Amino acid sequence: MRTFGKAALAALFASTAFLAACDANDGPAEEAGQKVDNAIEKITPDSKGPMEEMGEDMDNAYDNAQESVEDMKDAAETN
């Protein structure tokens, strides 16, 4: 059981480091992606641009990682 606790703790630290690297500020790549999306929306206003879809996928991945960290944190606290 101690090995599991150590592994869970290591996973928690790794996940925390991953989440700390994610920043809410828009960087130059995201701003460029938004410009591409805006240009594509002017051509095809009814559909999402590929960069917007990729951004949404990244948002979903971030949310899933955050939930996983919370789950691991809860699991570590119950042991």
Rank of each mutant, 00 (worst) to 15 (best):
M1G: 13
M1L: 10
T3F: 15
T3G: 12
F4T: 12
K6I: 07
K6E: 12
K6W: 06
A7R: 15
A7K: 15
A7G: 03
A8P: 00
A8Q: 10
L9P: 00
L9H: 11
L9C: 04
A11Y: 05
A11D: 07
L12D: 02
S15W: 05
S15N: 13
T16F: 04
T16I: 04
A17E: 07
F18S: 06
F18H: 08
L19S: 09
L19D: 05
A20C: 02
A20L: 05
A20P: 00
A21Y: 09
A21C: 08
D23A: 09
D23S: 14
A24D: 05
N25V: 03
N25C: 02
N25K: 09
D26N: 07
P28D: 15
P28K: 15
P28Q: 15
A29Q: 13
A29K: 10
A29M: 12
A29E: 14
E31W: 03
A32T: 07
A32D: 09
K35W: 06
K35S: 10
V36F: 06
D37C: 12
D37H: 10
N38I: 02
N38G: 03
N38S: 12
N38A: 14
A39Q: 04
I40N: 02
I40Q: 13
E41A: 14
K42M: 07
K42H: 08
K42F: 05
I43N: 00
I43L: 14
I43C: 02
I43T: 06
T44M: 06
T44F: 07
P45N: 01
P45W: 03
P45Y: 01
S47E: 09
S47C: 02
K48Y: 06
K48A: 13
K48F: 05
K48S: 09
G49W: 00
E52C: 00
E52F: 01
E53F: 00
E53L: 11
M54Y: 10
E56V: 07
E56R: 10
D57E: 14
D57A: 15
M58L: 15
M58S: 07
M58V: 12
M58G: 01
M58I: 13
N60W: 07
N60R: 10
N60Q: 10
A61C: 06
A61N: 02
D63C: 05
D63A: 15
D63K: 15
N64M: 15
A65G: 02
A65Y: 04
Q66T: 11
Q66I: 01
Q66D: 11
E67G: 02
E67A: 13
S68G: 13
S68D: 13
V69R: 12
E70M: 06
E70V: 08
D71K: 12
D71Q: 12
A75W: 09
A75F: 13
A75M: 12
A76V: 14
A76F: 10
E77T: 09
E77Q: 10
T78L: 08
T78H: 05
T78D: 08
T78E: 10
N79A: 11
